[in-house]
Simulated assay, not measured.
Amino acid sequence: MFRVLRPAATATAAVALTVLVSGPAAAGDPVVSDPRVVAHFDFALGQTPENIALEPDGSANLTLSFARQVVNVDKQGTKRILATLPAVANPNTPVIGAAAALGIARAHDGTLYVTYATGTAETGIWRIKTDGSAPVQIATLPATGFPNGLALDEECGTLYVADSVLGTVWRVPREGGSPTAWATGEALRPLPAPDGVVGANGLKVHNGAVWVSNTDRKTLLRIPVRSDKSAGAIETRATGLDGIDDFAFTGRDDTALAALNTDNVLALVRPDGTHKPVLTQQDGLSNPTSVAVGGRTVYVPSASYFTEVKDPNLLLAKLDKRHGLPGLPNR
Rank of each mutant, 00 (worst) to 15 (best):
T123W: 06
T123N: 06
I125M: 04
W126H: 13
W126Y: 15
W126C: 06
R127I: 00
K129Q: 15
K129S: 15
K129V: 12
K129L: 14
K129D: 10
T130Y: 03
T130K: 09
D131F: 12
G132C: 10
G132H: 07
G132W: 08
A134I: 10
A134G: 08
P135A: 15
P135T: 12
P135Q: 02
V136K: 14
V136Y: 02
V136W: 06
Q137V: 11
I138Q: 03
I138V: 15
I138K: 06
A139K: 03
A139C: 12
A139L: 04
T140E: 14
T140C: 11
L141D: 13
L141Q: 04
A143W: 01
A143C: 09
A143S: 15
A143I: 01
A143E: 08
T144N: 11
T144D: 12
T144A: 15
T144M: 05
T144I: 04
T144P: 06
G145Y: 02
F146R: 07
F146I: 06
F146T: 02
F146E: 01
P147E: 10
P147D: 09
P147C: 11
P147W: 04
P147Y: 02
N148Y: 09
N148P: 07
G149N: 12
L150E: 05
L150P: 00
L150Q: 02
L150A: 07
A151Y: 11
A151K: 02
A151W: 01
L152P: 05
L152S: 12
L152K: 07
L152C: 10
D153R: 00
D153G: 02
D153N: 15
E154F: 08
E154M: 06
E154Y: 10
E154A: 14
E155H: 14
E155I: 04
C156L: 13
C156W: 09
G157R: 02
T158H: 03
Y160V: 05
Y160K: 02
Y160G: 05
V161L: 11
A162I: 15
D163E: 02
D163K: 01
D163S: 08
D163W: 03
D163C: 11
D163A: 06
S164L: 10
S164E: 13
S164K: 03
V165R: 08
L166Y: 04
L166S: 05
L166P: 00
L166A: 14
G167A: 01
G167S: 04
G167F: 02
G167W: 06
T168F: 00
T168N: 09
T168K: 14
V169S: 07
W170H: 11
W170D: 07
R171P: 00
V172P: 00
V172M: 06
V172E: 00
P173W: 09
P173F: 07
P173Y: 08
